[in-house]
Design a protein around this nucleic acid. Sequence first.
DNA 1: ACCCAGGCGGGCG
DNA 2: CGCCCGCATGGG
Length: 291
Amino acid sequence: MESYQIPKIPVSNFSLKHTFESAQPLTFYADYNEISNTITYPYDSMVINMMHSGNQEKGELHVVSRHGNVAVDEVKRRFRLHDNMERIYKRIGTDEHVKNAINSYRGMRLTVNDPWETTLVFIISQFNNVKRIRLITRNIVKRYGTEITDSAGREVAKSFPQSRDLLKGTEKDFRELGAGFRAKYIKEAAEYCTYNINLTKLPGNKYNKLKESLMTIRGVGEKVADCIALMGYGNLEAFPIDVHIKRSMEKLYFKGKKKPIKQIQKLAEEKWGDYRGYAQQYLFHNARMTK
DNA sequence: ACCCAGGCGGGCG
DNA sequence: CGCCCGCATGGG
């Protein structure tokens, strides 16, 4: 029996529950246990197991893995622990609506996800609901992911498949995993992202350029590109406008009147500036949970 | 039965 | 350009 020291990371303003429930790519294939406040997920050829102790204001992250500092760094990066949440809350909590959302879901973090994972997940997300997005994503991971084994060689999980791993799948295959009409987008995106574009080389900090490049992928429009920019590249200037955000913001900021996407984008930029991605996630989650 | 879901591409005016 | 339509599938 090997024994490991379990690294602990002190954290403030952190909620695994709110983060996990906020429909980000990681949360579509990770396993979360609300009782033990633990999350388990594949990362490359590793399985990361992380527990949050303490409360939303102050606590610790316990990183249980065979991979020591590599896993610790992954957790820090993944949950954006470098973000100064007090400063961000101050910057975006400039009106009652965002302030209320922060009070309700304090500690919810944006996550940083692999760009290809994010692309695939949000192609699946279009005209779909969270439950089915999770189902389809997990089906694809199960079918096309690579085995991750423990020190005894037993399979403990499947890694998230890269675009190359999906090349052997046909449109029909993806359809059978539940993807519906998105199956052809998945097939095309897998080919395009393997042969025609290198997602790891895109300029993550140049919002307009990044979005323009992402939208050359078929099945990726404005909204999905913003989701990839925000959760795949950590670009907080991205402000994805989906049905929930649109309805909610029309109600809260435009007296219930229908407004074009452009106008909502403009308001977001004016109100929350370079941190608008965080405002979006809080408004989105609040809208979804209170509907 | 009907409506909706983290939208998109294509066709039309 | 903007508008409008169809689209797979499963849950409420």
